[in-house]
């Protein structure tokens, strides 16, 4: 647990992200969020940022230890099947990504569609899910030159993660497909459709 400025603490639980780390991070964030004096929690790849106002550090540390002692399978989640189109205009980087992964575009799509991914955290942009659990062969670096505009709904890969851009933004991930499923609605509660621990499968249409 490290100080991050005068109003926040960073609790880092692992060096590298994994499905197991993601579930632990999610459990930790959920537990700390309920503490009095905690203003905000931001779960990320291997850590939870806790913005505090008046909570004692030892109270936070004790709550963190208790949360981390729980089995990773505790907590609830939902299953999401997201319909998506792959390749062509919807996935302009599919061919190159498949080539770098040493497989055909069809194989890549089959592989992705047969993988159940886990939502690790929501970050980068409103409703943007960081999905973990990709086969290792699909862990490819991001593009050397980011795009100025990634279309909304783009399904993308980078650095071992899969992600979905809920809204058009600049971005450097490899675009392989596109979904029309809405992922963020600021008037809904909660505003993001996916939550940490949720499982996601892509349905090829």
């Amino acid at each position: 647990m490290r100080l991050f400025g005068e109003r926040a603490l960073l609790i880092e639980i692992a060096r590298r992200p994994s499905v197991r780390v993601a579930l632990r991070v999610a459990g930790l964030a959920a537990a700390l969020e309920r503490l009095a004096g905690v203003e905000a929690v931001v779960p990320a790849a291997t850590s939870v940022l806790v913005e505090v106002n008046g909570v004692e550090e030892h109270v936070l540390a004790a709550a963190a230890r208790a949360a981390l002692a729980k089995p990773v399978t505790s907590g609830t989640w939902r299953e999401h099947a997201l319909a998506a189109r792959f390749g062509g205009e919807d996935g302009p980087d599919l061919e190159e990504t498949a080539r770098l992964a040493g497989m055909s575009p069809e194989t890549l799509i089959d592989l992705l569609a047969s993988t159940r991914l886990t939502v690790a955290f929501i970050g980068f942009a409103p409703g943007f899910p960081y999905l973990i659990g990709l086969p290792r062969c699909l862990a490819l670096p991001r593009l050397a030159t980011p795009r100025v505009r990634v279309p909304a709904g783009s399904v993308a890969l980078a650095d071992g993660w899969a992600g979905i851009y809920p809204r058009a933004t600049p971005g450097g991930w490899r675009l392989i497909g596109r979904t029309d499923e809405p992922l963020f609605d600021p008037t809904a509660d909660p505003p993001a459709r996916l939550a940490p621990r949720d499982r996601v499968r892509f349905i090829v249409t």
Binding site: L10, T46, L49, Y130
Partner: peptide
Amino acid sequence: ADIPSVGLPVGA
């Protein structure tokens, strides 16, 4: 230059 994504307070 690259670290696992981390929550960032304003002011970082």
